[in-house]
Design a protein around this nucleic acid. Structure first.
Lengths: 212, 212
DNA sequence: GGCAAACACGAGTCATCGCTCGCATTAATC
DNA sequence: GATTAATGCGAGCGATGACTCGTGTTTGCC
């Protein structure tokens, strides 16, 4: 079962795309991101996405086999961009830093990414997203959790594993909810909320990891 | 426009309910709570609620004018119970306690309530809930925020108002996400996660409020 | 028992939405 | 210019789900 990809390198369905088609796809994905952000995935009708993009429903289905494929393609694009930020945020060099600078190095890129790609949290947080996206999100989630656990295990070699897991999960959900606050804040308050989130995590983790 | 209430004291539609009808209503609300918990509000069909309650769709509409009214009635019941826990959690006597005991006194009842009423968070957190529930939730949310702000203002009389608001909002979202963790944890881990949540809040707030 | 109202049923109605299909238009290649 | 494939359209199909309605059953009251 060949999955629909924008690449023409896929076997099976060597559908040659014209430049016009590529433009339409980008246009439709942008429109879908906008509609998903404002109404959520389930409430977003394919007709409304087509209308937002200024094309007919039939044209939409020229490029996507179904509604889920739109979300999957958009999710893939966002995940690729996310992994870039994620890679930058978790380079091992940062693990040598003192805690406050570690928090800056890890949190700032992730906050900036979510600010620049609001569709990401809209797609990932929705309770009605298609299974493929949910699996991708779970994979991303546990991969980040594992990273946090590795860092913590480095600081706390004596701690039993369940404790590490619990601390990592707690750290992670604090980050996620703090991120929501930062994104929802007025622009002139964003810096203050970012600092507040870092303060919470610093005070929580500092007694655990020591002064470095 | 008279709203449908279970009371017969309402004017306009003096519909006399039999004991059997009251039982059906309770039955239907319980079934709705179960279905909302497992599938969410939007994905819950009225037919599935009726099936879960063991009655026909027509019977359901004998007691509720539409799907929204089911959620509203259920939400009203849950909000009433919540206000009971809420009142117990925020009695002014607790404000004299040292911070760790204050956290115990405030958090434990709220955690217990959410554990015993899982439909509450299902109804309140969903992105697809009817406007009436959303308004109730917003009202509850800001009333609790105000309480937290009042407590903080008592500890920090010199702090400017935006700072108080920001700290209160941060405290609140930490509680909410920590609560989700506690509720999602395995039963034998629940105590540990509860303690972890209190640790986070203690370490965050203790430098602000001092040793008491 | 007799009557009216409340309760119960479930097939059917109606609107919505994902998606299709026949056909028109545009672009690439010769 | 001719041919072919890609692109574009929008009315309409089919499934789903909220809700109705005609009819039958049970309950409260005399």
């Amino acid at each position: 079962m060949p999955e629909p990809k924008s690449d023409a390198t896929e076997a099976g369905k060597p559908r040659r795309r014209q430049a016009r088609g590529e433009r339409r796809i980008a246009q439709l994905l942008e429109a879908a991101a906008h509609v998903f952000c404002t109404t959520g995935y389930a409430a977003a009708s394919t007709n409304s996405i087509a209308r937002e993009a200024g094309v007919s429903p039939g044209t939409l289905y020229q490029f996507f086999p179904n509604k889920e494929a739109i979300a999957v393609e958009l999710g893939d694009q966002l995940l690729a961009r996310w992994r870039a930020s994620y890679g930058q945020a978790f380079v091992p060099a940062h693990f040598e830093l003192p805690l406050d600078q570690l928090l800056d190095a890890v949190l700032d890129p992730l906050i900036q990414f979510n600010y620049e790609n609001p569709a990401f949290s809209a797609l990932m947080h929705g309770p009605d997203i298609p299974g493929r996206i949910a699996r991708d999100h779970d994979a991303l989630h546990s991969s980040m959790l594992t990273r946090v656990e590795e860092i913590l295990a480095g600081y706390l070699p004596a701690a039993p594993e369940p404790d590490i897991t619990r601390i990592a999960q707690t750290t992670f959900v604090i980050f996620k909810s703090g991120l929501d606050l930062v994104l929802a804040a007025e622009p002139d308050q964003r810096e203050a909320y970012t600092a507040e989130l870092k303060t919470v995590l610093f005070r929580y983790l500092e007694p655990l990891v020591g002064d470095r």
